[in-house]
Design a protein around this nucleic acid. Structure first.
Lengths: 389, 389
DNA sequence: CTGAAAGCGCTTACAG
DNA sequence: CTGAAAGCGCTTACAG
């Protein structure tokens, strides 16, 4: 039913397409291009359409000033030949510059998590900076709402072409997102999610599901000893939604799936800020618990506080599960005090956030809205091969 | 001690560098460039050195025909200004083409593993094909040595600029590597390792360590029930080195680390090819074992054979651990027949292999020789977020 | 051993 | 509404 024509050289492309467009060939004619196919250029399209390259360019970039007639003709040819612009030549010629801003917590000694997303962003930048992309970092203090407000104001004032945002303070972050929306600055959320309808993407972990994974590991190891303590190290009651989600996932698993049936779950909220009281609170919770504790699940990276306590008190019959490959946590994992760490691919979070903005802002491609990264299970045995992920 | 000068515009760069090179500035002068720094071009270097761009290019690419004197002068300036070539412009101007060949098993229904490395290679290609890179695939039959020989001969005859090689048949693969060496075709090994001294890199998993991870999971779940069966599904006795390594890692863990002390380990080799006998062999091994079996470790992706057997015979008190997210394995993981799967990041293996060749062949950068990928632990709970890794 | 010129494919003013 | 020309930074013959 169709004539098929394999084309190799520009001359042939020109001939067939020209003929096709001027009605010399059957409407069932199909142009089959192959591997050793010479690239179609704007010039070729212009030649076939009988216009100048400038006009094709105007059509390609929707910058108007083209009659509807020629526009349609050109779009037809572009479509027929499956024209793919040469993004190298494009980037080289258009001296467009894009500024991406990243608003994330500063990595501090003792809170090293955020150095990995930063590394991911920097690694990504190295791959795409040729395309005229530059990066501005706005660091804030993880514990200081005011520093977040200050840095977010700075970032927005600089009017970047895109923003990577760690919504550590969820309410304030929502305002930032709204603000960006008003100024047409696309936002990608990293690590935690908030106000999704106004963001182009979220890159991070499925918190609910990661709680289920933690519970599975707990359950698998402690089939018959159901005394479990959940510890939340929090900044403010009820504000860090992803921690609540993790706890919910953990509880869901035990409510529905556990092989041991529903065990006794206890929980404890400890302030993440006041340091001196942590130990006493843990001591009370563990020693005077109404149930003998055989497993502890910490819903974030502060699991090393518990590990330190267990080690000090020579308690080694408690299974301990927490989050993230902080240096302290890694050390306790190696020693066997922590049994499992759930990791969130922090480096990839950074990398993917940047790439998502690049695809959206520069290449103008569709991007996936929910980019859930794998929930990595880390043990002493596979830790070393995860160092840079 | 040093004069510091922040430069912004080309004019200043020219002035300072020119002055510096002609002795008008102190030797302690340091050129500090910053973010909003205009790119240094070949033209700038040529201007300062008082030569033409062509000469600078000759120096940059070591293509001789330059007097030692000017060569040194130009190299000095290049170094001083930390010149970074614009790889976009370079790729656009030099119409160089690079052909990468990939020699990997064909993904078949029932053996879907290799479709993920392929996907990784294809995804990577899409990022770099602008740079004149094309890909030729040479698929062979995982079970057929002759098809490997045939396809490898084809691949080499086509003289690619680089080869991605899955050394499924280790001895034959060594010959291929030697052959490539003679013709200056760089080789990246994917998934399994062989003949490393002649390859530029290996991309895959640390097999010994992955066996340790499997053992850890087994041990953690079965502290008191030490009857464990190791099952090897093999093509030929002693030929698939990475399977032996996995078993070795598993045994090492139990010999050294196990909390239960050294448990009773039994093992079984089953031919991967003759299908009808598998079930009977498993039945004999499990039912008439000298120890009651409470855990089975399968050293590769054929774990679904065991899962099928366990399910058919309604045995559900045996912990089952194996490798790879084949469709069959995923189904048994979801049902709870398989407890854990170790995954090897098959897609990333493909992606990294291609990128390694790109960096080596096109960008002429140093590449890391041993690229061990994370040893992913997959459970029913985190399976869905690993689909495409 | 060195330089001048043309070209890679696309974009950007500018002239009509 | 359309076209001709110059230029992005680098490379490739070619002439001397």
């Amino acid at each position: 039913m169709c004539e098929i024509c394999r084309v190799r050289t520009r001359k042939y492309i020109f001939f067939f397409t020209f003929a096709y467009y001027h009605g010399f060939l059957s409407k069932h004619f199909v142009l089959v291009t192959n591997n050793s196919f010479p690239k179609i250029r704007i010039k070729d399209i212009a030649g076939i359409a009988g216009v100048s390259p400038g006009t094709v360019d105007r059509v390609l970039h929707n910058r108007g000033e083209v009659s509807e007639n020629t526009r349609k003709r050109i779009l037809g040819i572009i479509h027929e030949l499956n024209y793919q612009p040469d993004i190298l030549a494009s980037a080289l010629a258009s001296k467009k510059r894009y500024r991406i801003a990243a608003l994330i917590p500063e990595a501090k000694p003792g809170s090293t998590f955020w150095k990995y997303p930063l590394k991911g962003i920097e690694d990504g930048l190295r791959e795409i900076n040729h395309f005229g992309i530059s990066l501005d970092m706005y660091y804030f203090d993880y514990f200081d709402r005011n520093s977040f407000l200050k840095q977010s104001a700075r970032a927005i004032k600089d009017k970047p072409n895109g923003l990577i945002l760690a919504p550590v303070f969820s309410e304030e972050a929502s305002l930032v997102v709204k603000n960006c929306n008003d100024q047409d600055i696309p936002v990608v959320l990293i690590n935690a999610s908030v106000c999704m309808e106004n963001c182009i993407a979220f890159v991070g972990q499925d918190s609910l599901q990661s709680g289920m994974v933690a519970a599975k590991l707990m359950d698998y190891g402690l089939r018959d000893n159901p005394g479990i303590l959940i510890v939340n190290f929090i900044r403010e009651e009820g504000k860090q939604l992803h921690l609540l989600k993790r706890e919910e996932g953990f509880r869901n698993y035990y409510a529905k799936t556990s092989q041991a049936g529903c065990p006794v779950l206890d929980y404890l909220n400890v302030s993440d800020i006041i340091d001196r009281k942590k130990e006493k609170i843990l001591k009370d919770a563990i020693f005077s618990s109404r149930i003998p504790i055989s497993g502890i699940f910490v819903t974030n990276s502060r699991v090393f506080h518990v590990a330190r306590f267990l080690e000090k008190n020579s308690i080694n019959n408690i299974t301990l599960i927490g989050y993230d490959l902080l240096e302290e946590n890694k050390a306790y994992l190696r020693k066997g005090v922590i049994d499992f760490l759930i990791s969130q691919k922090p480096r990839e979070q950074g990398l993917k956030s940047l790439m998502t903005l690049y695809h959206h802002v520069v290449l103008k491609k569709e991007v996936e809205k929910n980019q859930y990264l794998p929930i990595d299970i880390i043990t002493k045995e596979n830790l070393e091969h995860y160092s840079f992920t």
